[in-house]
Computed example of a mutant assay.
Amino acid sequence: MAYSIRICRIFGIDVKAHVSLALILLLLTYVFYVNKPPFGFSDLQNPMRLIYSVAMAVSIFLAVLIHELSHSLVAKRFGAKVREIVLFIFGGVASIEEMPKEPKKEFAIAIAGPLASLILSLFLFTPFRFLRLFGYFNLILAVFNLIPAFPMDGGRVLRSLLTKKYGYIKATRISAGVGKFLAIIMGVLGLFYNIWLTLIAFFIYIGAVEEERAVTLEGLLANYKVRDVMTPNPICVPSDATVRDVVSLMLKRKHLGYPVVKDGKLVGIVTLKDVMNAKEDDAVEDVMSRNVVVVSPETSVYEALRIMGEKKIGRLPVVEGNRVIGIISRSDIIKLAEILEIFEGVKKFESKRE
């Protein structure tokens, strides 16, 4: 997530704070500072009043971190890679690559967060005022995340329960539909009672749409390899070419990025961004990007799309035996998905007619 700062590393997982976290921490501190007991500390004298207010605001996000860490550790146990945990204005999100699709594994990962929050809340309902309030917020976190709507844990729990009967894609569509319906209800209620509820509803609705779209896309592309979609024998630029040569090539071919080769082997990639501020006589090897992300012709198309999204790049060289045999772009994949989606719609229409 952009505009995030790494704050620590736990169990090999980077924990980052988004800039929006500062805003919500200030807001929460103010809420605890002015509210009366049991949900605030306005009855205390400064500096304890301020100290408790700040500590409680930070503690809420500590609870979120424990919640997301629980998801992450269970996911790692099942072999998934966890890139990072980001804390932001709406809570936290664990970036888990290749989330297991087996119902039992998805259920275990999804339920781990609410279960950890629930256990914390039970242990923290003590006579000590600060801990009791912390326990109360952990209980809210557990219950709220069990709402059956993406991107909440409850949406994934619901999908895991439906997958055995309906299959992964249909189960996702059903769960997303439930989530969108609940989001609309929450959004309308928020307009009358609390605008914050409307903002959360918007977040839930977008999450449901994105999850449904991602799974549908994965389903459409499941049987396709990079070999099926790539542009074979792409134009490559020799490493001793000049920036002038690259600009001329871009103007002629209308492509904004080219693999750079030396002795027939891939050594980099040069894009419009690389040559924009370079001198015309500069050698390509002096301005190109050397950290090239590549895929093999047998890589799945959906995996290639995921890599592009993660690395924020628009194209990937296809390499076999250190030699460039093709190139695949995000637009190539999106066009394929659009065509497949149209054909799928036609098939459904024809089956209904029959």
Rank of each mutant, 00 (worst) to 15 (best):
Tyr3Asn: 14
Ile10Asp: 08
Ile10Val: 15
Ile10Lys: 10
Phe11Asp: 14
Gly12Leu: 10
His18Tyr: 09
His18Val: 08
Val19Lys: 00
Leu27Gly: 07
Leu28Cys: 08
Tyr30Lys: 09
Val31Ala: 05
Phe39Thr: 11
Phe39Pro: 04
Gly40Glu: 08
Asp43His: 13
Pro47Val: 07
Met48Gln: 13
Arg49Cys: 12
Tyr52Leu: 12
Val54Leu: 12
Val54Lys: 02
Val54Met: 06
Ala55Arg: 04
Val58Met: 12
Val64Ser: 05
Leu65Lys: 05
Leu69Cys: 08
Ala75Ile: 07
Ala75Cys: 12
Arg77Ser: 11
Arg77Ala: 12
Lys81Phe: 08
Val82Thr: 00
Arg83Ala: 09
Arg83Glu: 11
Val86Pro: 05
Ala94Phe: 08
Ala94His: 10
Ala94Glu: 05
Ser95Arg: 14
Glu97Trp: 01
Met99Trp: 00
Met99Ser: 02
Pro100Lys: 00
Glu102Leu: 08
Lys105Cys: 09
Lys105Ala: 06
Ile109Arg: 00
Ala110Ser: 07
Ala112Thr: 06
Ala112Tyr: 06
Gly113Ala: 12
Pro114Arg: 10
Pro114Met: 10
Leu115Glu: 07
Leu115Trp: 03
Ala116Ser: 15
Thr126Asp: 07
Pro127Gly: 00
Phe128Pro: 01
Arg129His: 11
Leu131Gln: 07
Leu131Met: 14
Leu131Asn: 08
Phe144Asp: 01
Ile147Trp: 01
Pro148Asp: 02
Phe150Val: 01
Met152Lys: 02
Asp153Glu: 03
Asp153Cys: 00
Gly154Pro: 00
Val157Ser: 01
Arg159Met: 02
Arg159Trp: 02
Leu161Trp: 08
Leu161Asp: 05
Leu161Asn: 01
Leu162Arg: 04
Gly167Lys: 12
Ala171Gln: 10
Thr172Ala: 13
Ile174Thr: 07
Ser175Lys: 05
Val178Arg: 01
Val178Phe: 06
Ala183Asp: 05
Ile185His: 02
Met186Asp: 03
Gly187Lys: 02
Leu191Pro: 02
Asn194Thr: 12
Thr198Val: 08
Ile206Val: 14
Ala208Gly: 00
Glu210Asp: 09
Glu211Trp: 05
Arg213Gly: 04
Gly219Trp: 02
Leu220Arg: 01
Leu220Ser: 05
Leu221Phe: 08
Ala222Cys: 00
Met230Asn: 08
Thr231Gly: 06
Pro234Trp: 03
Thr242Cys: 08
Thr242Gln: 02
Val243Ile: 06
Arg244Gly: 07
Val247Lys: 13
Val247Leu: 14
Val247Gly: 11
Met250Gln: 08
Leu251Met: 14
Val261Ser: 11
Asp263Val: 01
Asp263Thr: 04
Asp263Pro: 01
Leu266Ala: 11
Leu272His: 12
Lys273Ser: 15
Met276Tyr: 15
Ala278Arg: 13
Ala278Asp: 10
Lys279Ala: 13
Lys279Thr: 11
Lys279Met: 12
Asp281Arg: 15
Val287Arg: 04
Met288Cys: 11
Val295Tyr: 11
Ser296Ile: 01
Ser296Asp: 12
Pro297Lys: 11
Pro297Val: 10
Glu298Gln: 14
Ala304Glu: 12
Leu305Arg: 06
Glu310Val: 15
Lys311Trp: 07
Ile313Thr: 11
Ile313Pro: 02
Gly326Gln: 04
Arg330Ile: 13
Ser331Ala: 15
Ile333Leu: 09
Ile334Glu: 01
Leu340Gln: 09
Glu341Leu: 13
Phe343Arg: 15
Phe343Lys: 15
Val346Lys: 10
Lys347Ile: 07
Lys347Asn: 14
Ser351Pro: 05
Lys352Thr: 14
Arg353Gln: 13
